[in-house]
Design a binder for these strands. Structure first.
Lengths: 196, 196
DNA sequence: GTCTATAATTTGATAGAC
DNA sequence: GTCTATCAAATTATAGAC
């Protein structure tokens, strides 16, 4: 399973069904049978498209949804009149999405990544690649806004850490207060970084 | 299961065994049989001490380890010459612990909290209570250092979000860079908050 | 309180017909 | 490629002897 450019074949339906269940229930708690049912296919189809079983499916879900989340955030940030307001918009959008989904849909891969970090090396590497993509993309934008590369990278990691931590606290408390507080702090950090 | 003041009875052994396995493998991936084996007891003992089954055990683990983590962080912060250097020490200590455990031991409840946030209300409330304790404790210290209550709370939430997000990125990348970057940003946020 | 045995269900995975 | 049937193992949970 390498490409996802084809339009709505079975493999894609499986990936999207798995992504939704993994995000809401976690990786270990989601059975392949539940994924097959949600995708409207028998379980044999999963093994046809993902011979590596649950781990290969997990890797694919992390890669696809990680790239999708990055693209979404990049689009919001780049639509802002400048980097600072773009980041402000990203946190506000995250808060709106989390609230609209009744605190179910936050980061598409954080739960998976924590579950398997110490027990499944292929999936851990997939999550690392996804996060690295996010960090590099944000680092480039902060650097371009006027900041040395080292500070830009540390700031990018901090902004994304604020987002991930706030996702956790928002889901646990069923409140968007953490995302608003973290957004304010992220804006302050970026403003300070590019005004040096 | 309410108290844990008694010295090393079976219930306590069960809680500690479960805490270690939950932290490293997650909640759903850890079976009660594995917990019983790790605790050196038969599975029947778990149901004797925790009639509510896995959920009641999960709630207890969250409560106990959440309180323990709070106490640990408070001790480190309060040992610093001032709040800012105390927070710096806390992030440095977290990085050292994560690295020493080969990137297995980070936040004791984050993985659990994300796994069950949308599917197990008693456990979700337990995680919310634990996080609220951390936020309140840090808010009080920032306020005492010279800051209005509203800013202190937003800063506390941001500092803890930085820590949680950095835990995630550190485990996924098997690197302490995120914890160092987040620590630097946390120090900057607190410094700015108390110098208003 | 401890421990054994077991029920009922679900898990990931495989084989093979179509 | 699709789908059915099935396996061996693991899951939570319970009943009851000691």
């Amino acid at each position: 399973m390498t490409d996802t450019t084809t339009i709505n074949p079975s493999a894609e339906r499986i990936v999207f069904a798995a992504a939704e269940l993994f995000r809401r229930q976690g990786f270990a708690a989601t059975g392949l049978k539940a994924i097959a049912t949600e995708a409207g296919l028998p379980i044999g189809s999963i093994y046809h498209h993902f011979p590596g079983g649950k781990t290969e499916l997990g890797e694919t879900v992390i890669r696809i949804t990680g790239a999708g989340f990055q693209e979404l955030v990049e689009t919001i940030i780049d639509a802002g009149t400048n980097l600072v307001s773009g980041i402000d918009d990203a946190f506000a959008g995250a808060a709106a999405t989390v609230e609209a989904s009744d605190y179910a849909d936050a980061c598409p891969i954080a739960t998976l990544a924590l579950e398997i970090a110490s027990t499944n090396e292929p999936m851990r590497q997939a999550s690392d690649r996804a996060f690295t993509g996010w960090i590099d993309a944000l680092t480039g934008r902060i650097e371009a806004a006027g900041c040395d590369r080292k500070t830009a990278r540390a700031t990018a990691i901090s902004v994304l850490s604020l987002l991930e931590g706030a996702f956790l606290f928002s889901r646990a408390s069923r409140s968007v207060e953490p995302l608003h507080a973290a957004g304010t702090s992220a804006v302050a950090l970026v403003r300070a970084a590019i005004s040096d």
